[in-house]
Amino acid sequence: MYAPWTIGGVLLGFVFFVAVLLVQPVGVSTQFVVVDAILWDAADHAAITLDPASATGYTSTNAYLAEGGGRYAAQAAEFPGYGLVFVAALMLGAFLSALLRGGVGRRERAMPSIWRARFGDNPARRWIACFGGGAIVLYGARLAGGCTSGHMMSGTMQTALSGFLFSFATFAAAVPTAVAIYRRER
């Protein structure tokens, strides 16, 4: 059903390379901040403001968005920028791939069979766990300054120390967590 590790790995690696060749290494988690900032600025126009003194020309009342010469504020103000279109296209690409392999089954779409085998048929439990999991994952990603894409894939690919530190920490937590939570397979 899925690509063999050989072909899949070579093609995915080629995508990493093309990303660096043409623009910049792949990265995703920043865009969660950018979308938050866009929503916040839509609700309150004072959130992101023009600032000739900042490197990007934008600043924010939020210290994190104003950081680095207002780089996050600028991405939210000048959307859609490269990063946001990148993740939108990521979703489109995944959608097309799933369509081509026949789509994800209705039961599997509600919750994965591996969860069902362990926790039963109530999807609300899975959804609450995923909401909480998403919050922890993105909080951690922003604290780390990147996620599985930006640190683990792009970082280690560039031999960045931060990428190796991140990968080690992530697996040190993820493996025991998954082993402890999912005692049974599908």
Binding site: A129, G132, G133, G134, A135, I136, V137, Y139, G140, A141, L143, A144, C147, T148, A169, T170, F171, A172, A173, A174, V175, P176, T177, A178, I181
Partner: peptide, 8 residues
Amino acid sequence: LLGAGFGM
């Protein structure tokens, strides 16, 4: 943190 949420 990310790893814990990832594993769950």
